[in-house]
Write a protein that binds this DNA or RNA. Sequence first.
DNA 1: GCCTATAAATGGAACGTTCCAATAAATCAA
DNA 2: TTGATTTATTGGAACGTTCCATTTATAGGC
Lengths: 349, 349
Amino acid sequence: MASRAKATIFDIAREAGVSKSTVSLVLQGSGLIRPETAVKVRKAIEDVGYVYNRGAANLRKAHSNVIGMVINDLTNPFFAELAVGMERVFQSAGIVPFIANTAENPVRQEEVLKSLMEQGVAGLIVSPARGTTLGAFRRLETAGVPVVFAMRRLPESRIPVIAPDNHRGAYLATAHLIGKGHRRLVFFGGTSDLVVYQERLGGFREACETLGIAARDTLVVQGETSRRGGIACLETALAMAEPPTAALCFNDAVAFGVMLALRKRGLEPGTDFAVVGFDDVVEAEHYMPALTSVSVDTAGLGERAAHVMLKMIQSRTTRAEDHIGAVNLVVRESCGPNRSADLGMGDAA
Amino acid sequence: MASRAKATIFDIAREAGVSKSTVSLVLQGSGLIRPETAVKVRKAIEDVGYVYNRGAANLRKAHSNVIGMVINDLTNPFFAELAVGMERVFQSAGIVPFIANTAENPVRQEEVLKSLMEQGVAGLIVSPARGTTLGAFRRLETAGVPVVFAMRRLPESRIPVIAPDNHRGAYLATAHLIGKGHRRLVFFGGTSDLVVYQERLGGFREACETLGIAARDTLVVQGETSRRGGIACLETALAMAEPPTAALCFNDAVAFGVMLALRKRGLEPGTDFAVVGFDDVVEAEHYMPALTSVSVDTAGLGERAAHVMLKMIQSRTTRAEDHIGAVNLVVRESCGPNRSADLGMGDAA
DNA sequence: GCCTATAAATGGAACGTTCCAATAAATCAA
DNA sequence: TTGATTTATTGGAACGTTCCATTTATAGGC
C-alpha cells in the first residue's frame, strides 16, 4: 500500500498540488494558509502515510521537544511514582518524556547521558546514580542543556534540586518514636555517600539530641536501601549487647525488610519493636501492620520538577531555585497502638 | 569556555587541520585514517566540547539506533523487571533504550507511539495498553518499523509476541490447589478485554474440568489487577452463599490484596484460605506468608524480547516467531503448610 | 481600470551529518 | 624515472525539514 521509501513533505506536496513550503506551514498549524488548502494537504498527508521527521526538523529549529528522565532505579516503586507525576505535567504540555534507567551505575549513567545529549534533548530531569561525580554533568552544562536533580543531589553542584525536606522528615519521625517512650533508637539502612542519607541521619541525630537521648543510645546501622538491606540491618542490631527498641529506616523498602525479619524471629512489629519508614510508598498503607512513614508527596515532587524544567526551557536558562518539598508523618500501626488522640491527626494531610 | 553555538564537525576539522570527511571517518572509528591523524582529531573533539548530532546523522543513515519500550504501567514492579531484562541486552549492544509509559491509556499510547516514530526509532517493544485496537499499530507496520509485543498481545495481530505460557501456568497453579484438597475454587481479578486474562482463566477452567471440579464450584470474580482489586474480589467472594476456599489470582498484586483482606477479617492466608499468585515478583518471596506464585521469568522474557528485536532490525524484517516462555509454580506458604515431600521440588527451578 | 494593501503560496539556502567518487600521497615493481 | 597499486584524505551532493525573502493571487479604494 504505502510506498517502500518513506514519504517526505515533497511527496505530500506533489500529491496535494502545492509546494513543500505550504506543506511545512500546514504541519506547523500556521494560520497563513487558506483553510481549504490545509484540508487538501492534510488529506494528502493521510494518503501517503507520512511520518514527520523530527530529526530533520531539529536540524533547523535548534530547540527539540524531547525531555529525558534519568532514573537510578526503576524497580523501586518510589521512582516510578516520581515518573508518573512528571508525565502528568509533560503530557498536558504535549511532550512525551523518555525515561532511561541507570541501575545505580555511574558508568551506565554516563552512557545514558551521552546518548540523550546526542539525541538533542531539550532538558533533563535526573536522579543521579550513587557515586556520581560532578564531572558527569559538565558536558551538559557547557552545552547549556537545562538539568534538574530530583530527589537526590550532588554534594557541590549548582544544578537546581527538587527534593523533600529530609532533615525535617527524619526529625518528625524520630520525635514520634521518642514520644512513644523509646529510649534506645537506631537508624537503619543507606550509606554515607548519599547526600540524602546525610540529611536523614542528620534529622535523626538532631531529634535525639534535642529530646534528650544520649549519644550512646543512638545507633546507626548502614546497609543496602532495599528489603534485603533491612533484613540484614535488623539481624545486626538484635545481635548487639543492648539492642534498640525502635528504628527509623532510610526508606520504606528497608522498613519492610525490618518488619519481615522481626516476624521471622517471632517478634511483632509495632508492639515488640517500633519501625518508621520514609517515602510513604503506596504499599506502606497496605502492609501488615500498616507502616508509619514520612510522606514526601512523590508524585507532587515529580510534577514540580517537570514544571521547573518547562520554565527553564522556556526562559532558556540553566539555573533555577531549589525546591524543598513539605513532608509529614503518616502515623499507622508499625509503632504500636495509637492513643486515640493521635489517630485523626497523623492521617490528615 | 566552550563557544556559544554548538560545535560541528567543521569546527573540529578546522581545529585539527583536516577535512570534515576525515572527522566523520574518525567518529565512525573507520580503519582508513592514519592513527596519528585520528589522535589529533580526537584531541580536537575534546577541546571544542563537541556533541555528536545523531539527528543529522540519521538524516543520511536511514537506520537510527534508538529503540523504544512502551510500557502500560510503570508502577507495576513486574514491568520494571521486564524493562531491566531488556536493558541488559541492549546495553551490551551499545544501545540505550528509551522507555515511555502509557499508563494503561490507549489515547496516551497513540501519542507515545507517534512521538517515537517521529523520533525515528529503529524498533519498538510494546506491552499494549488495555483496550488497544489493532489500528494503533498500522502506521508502524506500513512504515516497516519492527515491533514486538511483550507480555501482552492483541487479539488478531501478526506482530510477534514474547509472553509466558499463561495457560499452562494457570493450569499448574490450579492443579496445586486441587491437590491440596480444595473443591470450591475462584479466579480473582482481571477483565475479559485482556488476552492474558482469557489465557489464564482458560488454564484455570481446564484444570478444574480435567481434575473433576464441577463447573458450579468454579467461580470467577473480575476486578482491577491491583492490590485494591484483590481486596474487592475477596470481599465479593466471601459474601457469597457458599464461599470458595482457594483462589488463583490474576497476578501477584491481586494476591497481595487478597491476603491483606483475609488478615483484616481475621483469617490466615494459607490455613484458612489458599491463595496463589501469578508472575512471581520479587516481593512474593518476602511476603508474610510467602506467596506461592507462578514464576514467569520476567527479566528473561525481557532479554528474549530484546534479542528478537535486535535480530529483526538486523535482518530488516518486521516478522518473527512468537516465543512462549516456560513457567513454573513456586510453592511457598500461602496455600498452607507443605507436606515435606513437596518442599524441595517447588523451590527448585 | 489602475494602484496599493493584504493574503496566500513559493523557491532557495541552511542545518550537521554520511557516503561516494575523486584526488593526493606514499609505496612498490619494473 | 614511470606507471601501477595501495593508503589517506578530501570535496560535493544528499538527507528532510524550517524560515526568510519573494512572487503571485485576491481584494479594496478611488
